[in-house]
Design a protein around this nucleic acid. Sequence first.
RNA 1: GCCACCGUAGCUCAGUCGGCAGAGCAGCCGCCUCGUAAGCGGCAGGUCGCGGGUUCGAGUCCCGCCGGUGGCUCCA
Length: 608
Amino acid sequence: MPQKIVPPPEPPEEAYPQSDLYRIRHSLAHIMAQAVLEKFPGAKIAIGPPVRHGFYYDFDLPRPIKEEDLKDIEARMREIIAEDHPFVRRVVSPEEARDLFKDQPYKLELIEDILNRGTDEYGNPLPPGETPILTTYRHGPFEDLCRGPHVERTGQINPKAFKLLSIAGAYWRGDENNPMLTRIYGTAWHTEEELQQYLRWREEAQRRDHRRLGRELGLFYFAPEEIGPGIPLFTPKGEIIRHLMESFVREVQTRYGYQHVWTAHIVKETLYERSGHLANYAEFMFPPMVDGNDRYRLKPMNCPSHMTLYKKMGKHSYRELPLRFAEFATLYRYEKKGELQGLTRVRALTQDDAHIFCTPEQIEEEFLLALKIIQEVLNRYRFTDYRVRLSLRGQGEKYIQDEEKWRQAEAALRAALDAAGLDYFEAEGEAAFYGPKADFLAQDVLGREWQLSTIQVDFIMPARLGLTYIGPDGKEHTPVVLHRAVTGTTERFLGILIEHYAGAFPVWLAPVQAVVIPITDAQAAYAHEVASKLREAGLRVEVDDRAETMQYRIRQAQLQKVPYMLIVGKREVAQGTVSLRLRSGENLGAMSLEAFLQKAREDIEAGV
RNA sequence: GCCACCGUAGCUCAGUCGGCAGAGCAGCCGCCUCGUAAGCGGCAGGUCGCGGGUUCGAGUCCCGCCGGUGGCUCCA
């Protein structure tokens, strides 16, 4: 198991607002605002809250800010800390507040909102029972509309434990119709050591960036100008990994009673009209291809295709259910340009999708089965830390009104989660409009949480598309459909895996499992002989007999993170052995081919 | 889509005040035949993202577009 590399510990989410770290970060946001106002006279200030790992403040600046400016701002912040100003809270009347912030239009907007709508300064509703009062915090010359809390004095902040990190754009109040403000992010901790640990963690994340490793390991490329933005090209090595990933999930699914189907990449638009997707998600579809009176779309999701297939296969008896259709389907979604990111957000994506057609009574059992598949798959990929978010119906009108169905489905999901012994938390109002769902949030070795698997209950689309089965009563009923993805999409999951493993894939997934390195030309023939024997035994093996030094070729294999290096020199030829070096640098010495194969089989089995 | 920054060889990058486009690695050729992370020499490699403008002269300055990065918004 690889060692976890994590940022310094943070208080749990519930306790964060009362923690010292929160006060420090919140106070630094104010101090930064003061420094920015001094450097940019006439700047308008918006909001500056603490966030995970740090804080930010949003500004409307009179001139663009540069990265170099951050150093000056940081230096001024340290001076303010050294001046050791007390933070002074006071309650102000609406008139006083309006006067105090008369040159700060964003603050004036906040004041009116607090007074009229009972929200806090970030626009969130106040806790029940709290009346809207206006408070400010002042340190030195800087006074800000703020609920606190803060440290008592600026001097309580460790001047060596914070750093300004980056400049970004952010919409006022997060609404893309509002003006774009300049956001400055900073990080802050108790001690310099914690700051250093945090910065090392960030560097490690950069070092593992799958876009960089993907190129260095020769797995995939993007050709935005030639092929198009967000559409990856996979090399032979990259394709092998995709193939292994999909074969693995396919094998598990088959074992669990899934059947694999195939549906094409283009579909008549009319199907998406009936399914309801066109009305809601047209902006995520590529524009239509027009053929006479027909319009075709690149398939952005499989559900309508699978459901059409279900219908075409004839009348279904309740005895056939559950029917589980799975497909590794490449879908095309017109993601907005600015949202594309490496393999984690692409326009051509391959979902490991499945649709389970079942009776309402079967929801619990099928949900539990899907949970088990997901657990088995995630464990194989060494994702052992995960929790489940159970998204339930909230108060909104977007939820289809069928009290009984919702209650039944939510109860079934809870029961299955309990039966699976999974750690889950409930999120009210997060459900899709068509039913409740469960998402798996898995932690990688950097402690980052990724939403991977999802299981969604759907009461709506089967009815819309006219799906039926004949029940024991001889009458037609509408099946429930579970939408389910295990790894989400092959592309995104591969991106996450690359970062999870830092490019050092476990042996079963490594595109090249072993490189045979003959020390001199004299052993080249033997090296090829060894390679072909190992290939016969099912390993992916290459020979590096280039006219370079052995050290050079070991280094190359090392950089490619090949699990096994098999060094063969005079001695190995004489004894008919190979000398095994691992990518950890460990040298296991000479062994027979049989012994090496045994070791490889064990490692494959163990998933290391 | 929005804000900021960026775009020079396959990769990482240098290129000063506007004055003949560079380095390392990778690649190719040759030598070297080596015991666990970089042997030596040579050669080749460019529409300086694209288009327009300013200028005697533009990689360098200005405008537009394309693409990328970090965020924001979004993510059925």
